[in-house]
Structures are given as structure tokens and as C-alpha cells.
């Protein structure tokens, strides 16, 4: 039934030993897993391999990128005029709001000086694009087109137009890997805007749900409360919206409430994100801080 070539192949194959090869690869992968789980020593290996896989990711991203290009280049004149019009109006409104913002900021700076607390440094940002590439379906990770040479670094915070998106986990040469705030392994320190109460928002593995598991029964939260980053922990700069509380549950005997929130950022429709350069150098994650991590003057 099998062709003769395959038979002779099998006969010649019987002399080789799959056991030895299996022993080698199994040992090597066990060592790799152990080292990768224990520490950060394999980041260089990851960087090399990720460079090898980057062309494939770009190729996969190209249809989506092409579609965007076509939308930009083949749009009708009418559409462009309308879009331009809306954008101009939007920009006017935002500029007007910004005027008030400027005076508020000046006022805030004076107050902070009065209170003798450290002045807030405005955050520097750059725009990164998310490659249309699926990663592990069990986790919420994305690939960005900005790597270490472009100033991206592990621990850098990502925002979109409406809120916090996540942070960079691994900076590589051409791209970097980011974790979203909804990943089950991710947590972000937040505070409730209404009363300044601080807690932690943990990812659930569901793209439109965050969980706040550390609120006691007497905590003052209700549906509709806005959550912003508290700035504790030193990773996320304070004051960016994280989400809105949608439900507060908890049966009588429980010590903690079950609070769920919806992320402010539209995590399921990400295309472009803002990379925030943190004003303080990140010490725990990036030991050799790249130029982008230096404190802004």
C-alpha cells in the first residue's frame, strides 16, 4: 500500500535511533522551560528567535495593513471631506477644553508647590501599531511594531484614546510583546474617582471584564464608578482611566464583594496605542534603562 520509496526510507530509518534524539530534545526543552520559568536569562535567546519569526508576523499582518492602506488611499473625496470636518470640530472642542486644562494645571502646580509635594511631570508618548497576529488564545497578549531600538522597554505602559491598555512584557529588536490589563496574570493598582478609595483591578481572561477582588463588604463602591490608575506601585502613571464598575455583587456571608468593571479602552478593536515614557526610571524591570526611560528634564 505504501509506495516503495517510503518503504526503503523506513528500512534505512530503522538503523537510526529516535530514542537518542528524543532524549536530547526532551532534556533540552525541559532545561529551557526550567530556566525560562525561573528567571530572565533567556531573554537574549527569545530576542534572536523573535527576530527569526518577525518576517512571518509581518507577512500575516500585511492583509490587514493593506486594507488600512486602501481605506486611506482609496477613500472617496466626499468621505475625506466629512471626516476632515468632524476631526476639525473635534480638535476645536478639545483645544477649548485644553485652554481650561492649562490654567488648571498651572493652578495645580502652585498648590503642589504650596503643599511641598513633587510636581507632576507631563508624560512623553509615542505611537505604536499593533500587528494583526494572534498569540496564545488562553492569554491576552499582543505584538507591537516598536522594539528596543525605537525606545520601547519592558514595563512601559500602553494607552489608547480612552484608557489604559496594558504594558510591555518583552522588548525585542523589531517588535515587542505586550500584556493587556484583562490577561489573568495582570493586575493594575486603581482608585475610585468618586471617593479616592484604592484597590487593585485584576484581569479575568475576558476582553471586556476586569475584576476587583479585594474590596470588603463595607467598601463604598457602586455601579457606574470610574476607576483611574492610582500611581501606586510606580508602574502606571496616576490618573489615567482604567474602567467603569458595572456590577457589585456579594452574598451575605462573604468577606469580600464581587465587583466587576468594564475596561475603558476598547481592547477588542486595538489598532494603534500610545507608549508612555515613564517619568521615573523603571528600576525593577529594566536594569540597563534605555534612553527612553530616562527621567524627562
Amino acid at each position: 500500500m505504501a509506495p516503495s520509496s517510503a518503504d526503503s526510507e523506513a528500512r534505512s530509518y530503522r538503523n537510526a535511533s529516535p530514542g537518542l534524539a528524543f532524549f536530547l530534545t526532551a532534556t533540552l526543552s525541559l532545561v529551557l522551560m526550567f530556566v525560562d520559568h525561573r528567571g530572565d536569562w533567556l531573554s537574549q535567546v527569545r530576542t534572536w528567535l523573535s527576530t527569526a519569526i518577525y518576517p512571518l508576523q509581518v507577512a500575516i499582518n500585511s492583509p490587514a495593513a493593506g486594507l488600512h492602506w486602501m481605506q486611506d488611499n482609496l477613500a472617496l473625496r466626499n468621505q475625506l471631506i466629512t471626516e476632515n470636518d468632524t476631526l476639525r470640530k473635534q480638535s476645536l472642542v478639545q483645544a477649548a477644553q485644553l485652554q481650561r486644562m492649562a490654567s488648571l494645571e498651572a493652578e495645580n502646580r502652585r498648590f503642589r508647590a504650596l503643599l511641598d509635594s513633587r510636581a507632576r511631570v507631563p508624560d512623553r508618548m509615542t505611537v505604536g501599531e499593533i500587528l494583526a497576529v494572534d498569540m496564545d488564545p488562553l492569554r491576552h497578549r499582543v505584538v507591537l511594531n516598536k522594539g528596543r531600538p525605537q525606545g520601547a522597554y519592558a514595563g512601559q505602559v500602553l494607552l489608547d484614546a480612552s484608557g489604559v491598555v496594558g504594558q510591555i512584557m518583552r522588548d525585542q529588536v523589531y517588535s515587542s510583546e505586550a500584556i493587556l490589563i484583562t490577561d489573568p496574570d495582570h493586575a493594575v493598582p486603581v482608585e475610585v474617582v468618586r471617593n479616592g478609595m484604592r484597590t487593585i483591578a485584576v484581569g479575568t481572561g475576558d476582553l471586556d471584564q476586569l475584576s476587583l477582588p479585594f474590596l470588603t463588604r463595607n467598601a463604598d463602591v457602586k455601579a457606574g464608578d470610574l476607576l483611574v490608575t492610582s500611581g501606586l506601585g510606580g508602574r502606571f502613571p496616576a490618573g489615567y482611566p482604567v474602567g467603569t464598575i458595572v456590577a457589585v455583587d456579594g452574598s451575605e456571608g462573604d468577606a469580600f464583594l464581587e465587583v466587576t468593571a468594564r475596561p475603558a479602552a476598547s481592547l477588542d478593536r486595538l489598532h494603534e496605542v500610545l507608549l508612555v515614557f515613564s517619568p521615573e526610571p523603571v528600576t525593577e524591570v529594566a536594569p540597563a534603562s534605555p534612553p527612553g526611560a530616562e527621567p524627562a528634564p
Binding site: 530534545t25 525560562d36 520559568h37 533567556l42 535567546v45 497576529v133 498569540m135 512584557m169 518583552r170
Partner: peptide, 25 residues
Amino acid sequence: GIFTAFLFGLLIDIAHGSLLGQHAL
């Protein structure tokens, strides 16, 4: 055979961002 499988396992690990060596094993 085994070496091809190992190589592609490593590539999957990188592409998925999973533990390095998991798919290789």
C-alpha cells in the same frame, strides 16, 4: 522527525509568547 518538531515547537513558543520549550517538548 524529532529535531524538526523541536525547532517548530520553539518557533511556536516564541510566536505564542508561552514558556520557552513548552511546545518544543
